[in-house]
Write a protein that binds this DNA or RNA. Structure first.
Lengths: 105, 105
DNA sequence: CAGCATCCTACCAGATACTG
DNA sequence: CAGTATCTGGTAGGATGCTG
C-alpha cells in the first residue's frame, strides 16, 4: 500500500499539487527528468487512488487541471513528516553509507 | 531518498525489528513470501543506510542478530504515522479505485 | 495542449542450488 | 544457521512518433 505513493514521482507530484493546482505541462516542466509516460501514468494512479482530481476544461486548446482531493490533503501531513525526517537525517545516512562502503570494499 | 525505505519489505522489516531484535531465520519465517535473496538484500540496504545493525555472534552454529539503530528508531515515528494513515484510509482508496475502474472500463 | 501507442532495454525479483 | 551464486522471465520506464 505504501509503495504506491512511495516512489519519487508520486511524492514530488503531491508536494507540487499541495501548493496549488497545476496543469499537465506545468507539471511536466516543473519536475525535472520525468517523461511524459511516467507523468501520465503517475497522475492516473494518484487519480484512481482518489488522491488527485483531474478536471478537463473544454476550451481550445484544451486545458486540464490537476489538484489534490481532500484525501490527498489528508495524506500531506504524515507524508511531509516523513519527508522532513529524510531531509533532517540525510547527512547521517550519507555518512553511514560512506563508512559502510569503506568497510565493505 | 524516500523510495529507499518505501518498498514493502523495508517497511515490514523495520516494523518487525521495532518490536524486538530478530535473527535471520526468524525474519525469514515471520515475513511471508520474502525470498532469501530479497531478505538479505533489504537487510544489507537498511544496514548500509545506518537504520539497522547487524551483530554476528561467533557461536556454532553461528547466529546473527538484527536490530534497529537509534537512527532507525527515529524513523519509526513518522513512518508509523504514514502507515496509520494508510490503514485508516484504505477503505476510501479501495472505493475510489473501484469507482475509477467502473467508470474507465 | 494533453496526452496515447508502440517499441525497446536494462534492471530486478523469484526460484533453485550450493556453502562456510 | 545464515547466507552466496547463478539463471531467467517480467516489468518499470525511456524514446519516439502521432492525435483530437
Amino acid at each position: 500500500m505504501l509503495h504506491r505513493i512511495g516512489d519519487k514521482w508520486s511524492v514530488l507530484l503531491l508536494i507540487l499539487l499541495a501548493r496549488a493546482p497545476h496543469r499537465y505541462n506545468e507539471l511536466h516542466r516543473s519536475i525535472d527528468g520525468i517523461s511524459q509516460r511516467m507523468l501520465t501514468r503517475t497522475l492516473r494512479t494518484l487519480e484512481s487512488d482518489g488522491l488527485v482530481s483531474r478536471e478537463v476544461h473544454a476550451t481550445v486548446p484544451p486545458s486540464v487541471e490537476y489538484a489534490l482531493t481532500s484525501l490527498g490533503r489528508s495524506l500531506l501531513e504524515p507524508l511531509s513528516a516523513l519527508a522532513n525526517w529524510a531531509v533532517q537525517h540525510e547527512p547521517e545516512i550519507q555518512q553511514a553509507r560512506a563508512q559502510h562502503a569503506r568497510a565493505g570494499m
